[in-house]
């Protein structure tokens, strides 16, 4: 029996789901090895009977929490895809300010009281609400990594993400280190698996895949200081995707 897969999105840009669609011909392979029973963005068909749930997006409101809890109950395996689901991503930037201030900045004096669509709390990653079995990080996710994780789950292997920094992949691609180009980069403390795509285009890593569990934060701060990066600049880059994990 082919595993039944359902794809859901919460507060997100749907860019990660787009990467699944962007598998092009491999998409046909995917729907051959699993049954996609629900994928609101691309399909009208829907079923509440699924084994594997893929979640994109962050949790912002009580109604989102209810929805993700229901999904967790139905699914045997829950996989968070993309930075918003895995870490909170860009959505967590607003946690810097109180919710009321943020609402006022965007909606001014609009009457939002009692409206459940606007009942937001500080952004949460999916694992701050329910248990997540596997993560596919990135902003957006890397198509090849997605294929690797799904293949592993289908073959009964445990999907393993790299536990080493982006530098490993960057050096293997023989890139010139972006520090030499006058930029700074979070590659040494960020999880690899994206094949160092941003530094390969001469843009420093922003840490969208999340910092490593054993990231060498002090050593990284030393290096940044050596290259003249100010504390303010450091904080902003560290907190872009890894909110509060780079606290100085």
């Amino acid at each position: 029996m082919k595993p039944r897969v359902a794809i859901f999105d919460f507060a997100s840009c749907e860019g990660c789901e787009l990467q699944i669609v962007n598998l092009e011909e491999k998409l046909l392979d995917l729907i051959d090895i699993v049954d996609v029973v629900s994928f609101r963005e691309a399909m009208k068909e829907h079923s509440n009977d699924y084994d594997i749930a893929l979640i994109e997006g962050s949790i912002m409101r009580p109604m989102d929490e209810e929805r993700i809890k229901k999904i967790r109950e139905r699914a045997k395996v829950l996989i968070a895809i993309g930075a918003c689901a895995c870490l909170g991503g860009v959505n967590k930037l607003r946690n810097e300010w109180p919710v009321e201030e943020v609402k006022k900045e965007v909606y001014g004096d609009a009457p939002l009281e009692g409206n459940k669509f606007f009942d937001v709390f500080p952004t949460k990653a999916v694992d701050e609400v329910v248990k997540v079995d596997f993560y596919i990080p990135g902003c957006p996710i890397d198509r090849n990594e997605f294929a690797k994780v799904i293949t592993a789950v289908a073959l009964g292997r445990k999907p393993r993400l790299p536990t080493y920094p982006v530098c490993v992949e960057c050096k293997k691609r023989e890139n010139i280190c972006v520090f030499e180009l006058g930029q700074f980069c979070l590659g040494p403390i960020t999880r690899a698996g994206c094949n160092a795509i941003c530094p390969s285009f001469q843009d420093g890593c922003e840490g969208c895949r999340g910092f490593l569990d054993d990231a060498k934060m002090d050593a990284q701060k030393d290096v940044l200081r050596k290259y003249g990066v100010t504390v303010d600049q450091m904080m902003k880059k560290f907190n872009f995707y890894n909110y509060r994990k780079g606290v100085l």
Binding site: F10, A11, C13, G15, G57, M60, R61, D64, G89, V90, N91, L93, R94, W97, E101, V102, K103, E105, V106, Y107, F117, F118, V120, C139, E206, Q233, K236, F240
Partner: peptide, 24 residues
């Protein structure tokens, strides 16, 4: 869900505003 991007770009350097807003 409202995303609040116009609030989030406040205080951010011009050099990566587009990185934030592309995520809209």
């Amino acid at each position: 869900a409202p995303r609040f991007f116009e609030a989030m770009v406040r205080g951010k350097s011009y050099s990566y505003l587009s990185h934030i807003t592309s995520r809209i």
